[in-house]
Structures are given as structure tokens and as C-alpha cells.
Design a binder for these strands. Structure first.
Length: 860
RNA sequence: GGGCGCGUAGCUCAGCGGGAGAGCUCUCGCCUUACAAGCGAGCGGUCGCAGGUUCGAUCCCUGCCGCGCCCA
């Protein structure tokens, strides 16, 4: 496991730049970001990786941030977690394949472009070659062609991505910036289209005309994974249907859908309605005869226990319509308004008043009409109830019947669902309980994955349809783009065997108008990043990847869909590990997000506390655990970084250098220190192997503070000398510094690199991860413990006497357990110097170690 | 309503079968020749509540209460 690292250089102190007079954290980011770029410190050595066994490579499937979005400290924390792992693996000698991507396709980018430039896409407009967007976004959005719109998307995302890269470099992410990908790039489009064609060929993808959840603002279909329930006020309207033996009352929150009513439904066990099953009733106002049917999903406790089934008011309607094979009477159009003509069988009279209305105003009118006809009983009863929304939308979803593309995901196939659950069990989840999120989601799927979107900036489906003599498309046998031609844009490219002038004319062809949802492309991030389409040799080496880091909110989307795609194409999971980070939350424990207005801009925090301080805080958030944003903690991190600088300077000033080795360490106290440090190295290594970077940092940090406060204080007088005892201390300080800098390097990349540069050559980030074997064995760490305890007792005496730590001690009597007397004696000289003790005696006694201190007369 | 996680010092958290801990805050003190953006010392908790298992429970089991997230 030593492939990608350089051997430690032995250079004398000062040869690599020397120790500055007054070390400072300020400016370290600029200095080292530039140097790492120049030196290509984090380059992935493709040739060397391919030549080595697979386990010498560590491949990370980094989340591509939404380029049109904004980053907050939550992102910084999460990406830092990944970077800590990457840096650790690199120091372990692995070839770290750590690309970065930008998720720049899809709706968020469209929205940003619309707002930024004040434009909107109108696909019917022709391309305007010289188009330039207005300087300032006007009040009314200027309609532009699809191609102009896409060009603006690309222009703006390029700017956004450059900003993102700058920030990530400042955060110190050790990604190989030569390996950046974009989800809208030509390669990504080709990959997404090729994978889609494979899915289609194997029957994993299909198109279907079906009731679809539809956002009327964005005028696109949305998938189950993008839904959220929101509590909204509504009202039950009690409406009378004319039954064979008098009126039948239903209660509905959507009386405006009365013209779409196709049946009434009650629970089969509901005695109240059993006599009605098999009969028909007549809708009020419209006089349409509809059957009364029984279905287990009808809730006897809800409203009057009998409901009207409309096409379509909610997902239950869809289920009933499908399972009971009811007719379709759709009234809501793509724009969310009532369509111009009534459904078949519904009289034109009352319907004409609704045509063109929104649901809201249609409801008002229907209620008036029902009141007039006497079919509305009493006043509407206000309630609040969950209503389905697109997570990015502001208006309730409607259900519209449209033709859409789907990928099978187990939502309607128990065997497939089982197979995908099994895939989930192949992944090592960090923390383990996050696997439940995956399993809950898969088990709760109720339909296949809808991947088509009626949008513009996305990967188009590589599909055309033949037009018959009437100009009607033949959806049954689509024309597929040949794989060799990918990526294609069917709206401008012409299918084989046709000419451009046949587009849209009878006997000609028609492009599939839709683009893929962004998840349909980002679910291929392992394939895109690893070169499935561009570098098969690399792909074969790094796939399945080692790590998928991401936050827990997108297990149902990104993680799951990536598993689905890899399951189909490769018959395996896309990565061995999924490390799930928590959120940074505000003091009220609310998730930080721009829309909530509680997001903290990262650059400000990075500048005020320094990157290392922010990273230190990030490392304190365990995998999966949310953590509150608290600036006080940043100060603690900054103090640690500062301490590393100062102790580094001091230790090197005492004579620590790379010329000294483990063999020079002869004094018992020094060996005690290094033996303890060996234990720390083992523990930190074990923790990092388990992705527990928090624990690794904790053990290193605890050791470090005791190193500074106790060990360095104990030995500094001795180290000033030049005899063998002095050399022993200097060697121990050098080894301890070297090891500790490397232990901290993944978390504090800037300050460790700075101190490393004072006395070593090469980057600490290419130095080997410390091993216990570098350190001398056989020391008794208890020597350090008892010496520190004794020193602490002496400090306490001085502190209680309100004396300076420099105050002289006339005499000190250490009383220690019998077995520890010899250990205290081993540190006698260091102890007397550190405590400024004139006369030290050590005696055996009962109980824990204590020291009786007599301070010297400060005036004497 | 279901799933998952969490309730330990004022705050943020570690510990998870035999000593209740860390950092921050707070208080007191110290110019100490690496660091005053520092250092030293100290105050501070019936480990959510109630049962159970055990010689012994913060830790294991059950129930309850509260908080958060995900899903209905």
C-alpha cells in the first residue's frame, strides 16, 4: 500500500523555508491553494492506478452540487467530511480518484436563468443568432427560443461553476480539478441517452399514457420522489346525488370536480351503503349517471363514508379508476385550468361556465350553482388536510393524463423491489441505521420512476415518432437514435432515413418533446465520472466505486436512483460504502436552507475563522448526525490551528529536526510519550478505517493538548541542552511533531502543510499516514501520566496561592503508590525544572498521587 | 399513523454493565523567554420519567413523556 506517496525526505531544519518569526494563520489558504494547484498535489495518477491492484485505488462518487444554487455551511461540512476521508486514503498510499461534478441541468437552472436574465423559453420561437439578454431583467419575461434559452443556461452555469470551484478550493477539497464533469455536458448527455436506450432495449424503461402528478406552474410531470405533503386549509362540501331511494350525500373538498365524477365509492363492509352497490346515482347539476362501487380504500370514518371518484382529484382516484376500470372524464388541462370542452357524456350547459377557469374559481362557481339547485347541504365545513405539492412548487399538484417515460423501480413489481432491497444490503452504510431510510423508501414505492419532464434544459430523449398520413404520431414503434450518434437532440437532429423538411408533416417524423429529469442523469454520476462512455479502462478499474458521500435527504432520490441504474446496467451496486452526513441546523434545530432564510454564507465564516477552523468544526459532526451551527466552536478550531503553528515553531526552535531518529530517544519520559503516541496512531487509524473521522480527531487532539501542556513543558529545559538527554528530547519532539502533523493533516490541511514546510520537503498530504511502527517501542506511558499529574498538582498549588507559574517551589513531596515511585523518579529532573522545584522528594504512600508543595518566599 | 434517530453539566457532545467525562460558557488567578487570539486552577449533573433483568444499570429489556428527521 505504498504507491502514491513519496518517502519522507530527510532535510535539515530550515532547508525547506525555515520557521517564520511570527507564525500566522492569515494568508495560509491563498498560499497553499495556489501551491497545491501549481504542484498538482492532488492529481489522480491514472496510469499508476491502472497498473496497481484495485485496492490501491480509492474512488469517490462526489455529489455534484446544483450549480445554479448557493452553497451554505452545511455543504462545506458535508464536503469536508468526504475530503477528510480522501486525504486519509491518499496518505495511506492509495490513488484517490476524487472527481467533482456540477449538476447544472434541470429546473433549478432554468429558474435561475429566467430570473437572472428576465427571459422565458418559448419553444415555438426560432433561434436568434445574435441574441443578447437584457442588461437588467425586465418586469416581463422576454420569450426566447429553446436554443437561445439553453445557451443562456450554459453561459450562466459556467459562471456559477467557476465560483463554486473557487470556494471548494478555499475549503481545501483535495479533488483533482482536472476531472470535473457537468451533468449537461456532451458526455453526460451521451451517457444518459445510451443508458436510457439500454434500459429501453431491456424493457426497463417504457412510455405510457397515464394519469400523472402534474405541476401546473412549471407545466411538467413530477415523480413520487419529488412530492411533499403540505397542510392546507380546505372544506368539506356536502353534496347530494340523486339515488334510487332518495339523495345520497357525499362530502368532498373538491366540488369543482363534479363534472369529472365517474362513480361513488364506499367500503365493501359499510352497511350503510351496501344496498347501493351495483346501482347508479345521478350527479347534481350535470345529471350524469354514475355507478356506486365498493373498494377497500374507501374510508367509512371520513366524511359521510361514501366518496365521489373523479378523474382525477387525488392518487386514490387513480387507484380506483385503474382497479375498478372506470371511464375517464378529465377536466383539468396542462395549465391547471378547466379544458374548453366537457368530457364525453357530460352536458355542455353547466360545464361551459367552468371552461378556462382555475380550480379555485371553478370551485366558487360550482358552489354557487349547487346552492342554487339545492344540492349543497349546509355550509362547507373547514378542515386542514395534507395536499400534495411538487417540492419546488407553490401550487397544489393536479393529476393530468399524459404520455410519459418511466423506469421500472420496483414500485409495481415485488421481485424487482426485493432485488433492489438486496442491493441496499450490499452497501455498507455509515452510519448503519441510514439503511432504514433506503428500505423504507423502496418498500413504500407505489409506482415506477417517472423520468420525463416537459422542460427545456435537460437531456432530451433520443427518440422520434413516425407520423402517419393524418400527421398522427405512431408511439408504438419509436425511432431510436443509433448509439454511435449520441448525444442527439431530436428537435434539431433528423432520424436516419428522413430529411429535415419531413419534420412535423404527415408521413414524416416528430421529435419526442421531453427532457429527462435531472435525477435521470445524476443517477449516472458514477458512470459519468468514471468514464463508462469515454474511458472504459478507467471505468473497469474504479467501478464499483468505494464511496458515495451524501446527505440523508436525498437517499430516496440520488442514492436510490443510482442503485437502480447500476443494478440494471452492471448487475452490481455502484459503490461499497455510502457515508451519510447530517445537516447543519440553526439554533432552533431547523435545517439550514436558503429558502428558509437561515443559511449562513460559508465564505464569510471561512474568512473570519480560517478554513482549518471551519473544517475542524465539520470534523466534529459525526456521520449522519445533524449539528447546530455555532460560531463559538469555530473559535475553538482556530485556537487549535494556532496552537499547531506555535508548538511547531517552538519544537523546531528547540532543535527538533529530521536528522533525529527513534534510536536517539533514550530517556524514559520521551519513550513514554512516543509509546502513548503509538497507541493514538493505532486508534486514529482504526477510527478512520471505520469512517469515524470524529473519533480519529478526538484522540489525536486529546493527545496533542497534553503534548503541549505537559510534555513540552516538562522537557523544554532539558531540550535546550546539547547532551544525549537533550538529543533524546529533541528526537522525541521531532517524531511527535511529524506524526501529529500527519494525524491532523486530513482535518487541518493548511496549518499542517505550513508547519510541515518549515522542516520537511514535499507535501504533508503526500506523506505516508503515520504508523505505530515508526515510533520506538517499550516505553511505559504511565511515566508521562504520573509526571503530568505531579506537575498539575504543583500548578494547582501555585494557582491557589495566586502565584505565577514561574514561582519557585522551595520543596515538593510527591506521595505516590509504591509501584509509581520509580516512575516519578524517572522524570525527576524534568519535573524539578518544569515546576522550578528546589527540593523534590518522592515517597510511597496510600491513595492517589498527591504533592505537598511549599512555595518559596516570593520576596526572598 | 408507520419507520429511524436523539434526550448525560448553562451550551455542544463523548462514554454505553462496575470510578460520571471533554470542550465551550462562567468564576478566580497568572505578562510564563512557543503561544495573552495565551496559560493555570475552580464551580457545575438523582445521565428524560417509571418499571424490569442483574450482586451491581447512564449503559441491557419494556412502557411512557419530549424533540428531530423520513414516510404515509
Amino acid at each position: 500500500m505504498v504507491a502514491d506517496i513519496s518517502a519522507p525526505d530527510s532535510a535539515g531544519p530550515g532547508t525547506a523555508g525555515g520557521v517564520p518569526e511570527k507564525p500566522s494563520l492569515d494568508g495560509l489558504e491563498d498560499k497553499w491553494v495556489a501551491r497545491w494547484a501549481t504542484d498538482d498535489t492532488y492529481a489522480f495518477d491514472r496510469a499508476a492506478a491502472l497498473a496497481a491492484p484495485r485496492d490501491h485505488t480509492y474512488a469517490i462518487d462526489t455529489p455534484p452540487p446544483t450549480a445554479s444554487g448557493s452553497l451554505h455551511v452545511g455543504h462545506v461540512f458535508s464536503y469536508t467530511h468526504t475530503d477528510i476521508v480522501a486525504r486519509y486514503q491518499r496518505m495511506r498510499g492509495r490513488h484517490v480518484f476524487y472527481p467533482m461534478g456540477w449538476d447544472d441541468n434541470g429546473l433549478p437552472t432554468e429558474r435561475r436563468v429566467q430570473n437572472y436574465y428576465g427571459v422565458r423559453c418559448d419553444p415555438s420561437l426560432p433561434y436568434d443568432q445574435g441574441f443578447e439578454p437584457p442588461e437588467k431583467a425586465g418586469k416581463d419575461q422576454q420569450p426566447i427560443s429553446r436554443r437561445n434559452f439553453v445557451e443562456l443556461c450554459e453561459r450562466l452555469t459556467a459562471v456559477d461553476e467557476a465560483e463554486f470551484e473557487k470556494l471548494w478550493r478555499r475549503v481545501g477539497l483535495s479533488v483533482d480539478w482536472a476531472g470535473v464533469y457537468r451533468t449537461i455536458s456532451e458526455t453526460s448527455r451521451a451517457t444518459a441517452q445510451r443508458m436510457f436506450l439500454h434500459n429501453l432495449a431491456r424493457g426497463e424503461a417504457y412510455a405510457q399514457e397515464a394519469p400523472t402528478l402534474w405541476d401546473v406552474t412549471f407545466r411538467t410531470a413530477v415523480a413520487q420522489a419529488e412530492l411533499e405533503d403540505r397542510e392546507r386549509p380546505g372544506a368539506y362540501h356536502r353534496v347530494a346525488f340523486a339515488g334510487p331511494a332518495g339523495p345520497v350525500h357525499i362530502e368532498t373538498t373538491r366540488p369543482e370536480l363534479l363534472p369529472a365524477c365517474v362513480a361513488l365509492v364506499a367500503h365493501p363492509d359499510d352497511a350503510r351503503y351496501q344496498p347501493l352497490f351495483g346501482t347508479t346515482v345521478t350527479t347534481p347539476l350535470f345529471g350524469v349517471e354514475v355507478p356506486v362501487v365498493a373498494h377497500r380504500l374507501a374510508e367509512p370514518d371520513k366524511g359521510s363514508g361514501i366518496a365521489m371518484i373523479c378523474t382525477f382529484g387525488d392518487l386514490n382516484d387513480v387507484t380506483w379508476w385503474r382497479e375498478l376500470q372506470l371511464p375517464t372524464r378529465a377536466v383539468i388541462g396542462w395549465d391547471g385550468r378547466f379544458v374548453a370542452d366537457p368530457p364525453p357524456g357530460v352536458p355542455a350547459g353547466p360545464y361551459a361556465e367552468l371552461a378556462g377557469k382555475t380550480s379555485f374559481s371553478a370551485q366558487q362557481r360550482i358552489v354557487e350553482l349547487l346552492r342554487e339547485s339545492g344540492d349543497l347541504e349546509g355550509d362547507p365545513r373547514p378542515i386542514t388536510h395534507p395536499v400534495k405539492f411538487f417540492e419546488k412548487g407553490e401550487r397544489p399538484l393536479e393529476i393530468v393524463t399524459t404520455r410519459q417515460w418511466y423506469i421500472r423501480n420496483g414500485g409495481r413489481d415485488a421481485d424487482l423491489r426485493e432485488a433492489l432491497l438486496a442491493r441496499g444490503r450490499e452497501i455498507q452504510w455509515v452510519p448503519d441505521h441510514m439503511r432504514h431510510r433506503y428500505e423504507n423508501w423502496v418498500e413504500g414505492l407505489n409506482g415506477d420512476w417517472l423520468i420525463s419532464r416537459q422542460r427545456f434544459f435537460g437531456v432530451p430523449f433520443p427518440v422520434w415518432y413516425r407520423l402517419d398520413g393524418e400527421g398522427e404520431p405512431d408511439y408504438g414503434s419509436p425511432i431510436l437514435a443509433p448509439e454511435s450518434a449520441l448525444p442527439v437532440d431530436p428537435s434539431s437532429d433528423v432520424p436516419e432515413g428522413y430529411t429535415a423538411d419531413q419534420r412535423g408533416v404527415p408521413g414524416g417524423f416528430l421529435a419526442d418533446p421531453d427532457v429527462m429529469d435531472t435525477w435521470a442523469t445524476s443517477s449516472l454520476s458514477p458512470q459519468v465520472a468514471s468514464g463508462w462512455d469515454t474511458d472504459p479502462e478507467l471505468f473497469a478499474h474504479v467501478f464499483p466505486m468505494d464511496l458515495r458521500p451524501q446527505a440523508h435527504d436525498i437517499i430516496r432520490t440520488w442514492l436510490f436512483s443510482t442503485v437502480v441504474r447500476a443494478h440494471y446496467e452492471h448487475g452490481q451496486v455502484p459503490w461499497s460504502h455510502a457515508a451519510i452526513s447530517g445537516f447543519v441546523v440553526d439554533p432552533d434545530r431547523k435545517k439550514m436552507s436558503k429558502s428558509k432564510g437561515n443559511a449562513t454564507t460559508p465564505i464569510d465564516v471561512l474568512e473570519r475563522y480560517g478554513t482549518d477552523a471551519v473544517r475542524w468544526r465539520a470534523a466534529g459532526a459525526r456521520p449522519g448526525a445533524d449539528s447546530p451551527f455555532d460560531e463559538a466552536q469555530m473559535k475553538v478550531g482556530r485556537r487549535l490551528a494556532m496552537k499547531v503553528l506555535n508548538v511547531g515553531k517552538f519544537v523546531l526552535g528547540l532543535g527538533a529536526s529530521t536528522a533525529l531518529t527513534a534510536a536517539d530517544v533514550t530517556e524514559p519520559l520521551d519513550r513514554a510519550l512516543l509509546t502513548r503516541l503509538a497507541g493514538v496512531v493505532d486508534e486514529a487509524t482504526a477510527a478512520l478505517e471505520a469512517y469515524n473521522y470524529t473519533r480519529a480527531l478526538e484522540v489525536a487532539e486529546t493527545f496533542f493538548w497534553s503534548f503541549c501542556d505537559d510534555y513540552v513543558e516538562l522537557v523544554k529545559t532539558r531540550a535546550y541542552g546539547s547532551d544525549a538527554a537533550a538529543v533524546s528530547a529533541q528526537a522525541a519532539l521531532a517524531l511527535a511533531l511529524s506524526v501529529q502533523l500527519r494525524l491532523f493533516a486530513p482535518v487541518l490541511p493548511f496549518v499542517t502543510e505550513e508547519v510541515w514546510s518549515w522542516w520537511q520537503t514535499g507535501s504533508v498530504h503526500r506523506a505516508p499516514w503515520p504508523a505505530a511502527g515508526e515510533l520506538p517501542v517499550g516505553g511505559d506511558p504511565v511515566i508521562l501520566t504520573v509526571a503530568a499529574e505531579a506537575l498539575s498538582a504543583i500548578r494547582k498549588a501555585k494557582s491557589e496561592a495566586k502565584q505565577s507559574m514561574r514561582a519557585d517551589v522551595a520543596s515538593a513531596v510527591v506521595t505516590a503508590p509504591e509501584a509509581h515511585v520509580v516512575l516519578v523518579e524517572a522524570a525527576r529532573t524534568d519535573l524539578t525544572h518544569a515546576g522550578r522545584i528546589a527540593e523534590l522528594s518522592v515517597v510511597a504512600g496510600d491513595g492517589p498521587l498527591r504533592v505537598d508543595v511549599v512555595l518559596a518566599d516570593p520576596t526572598g
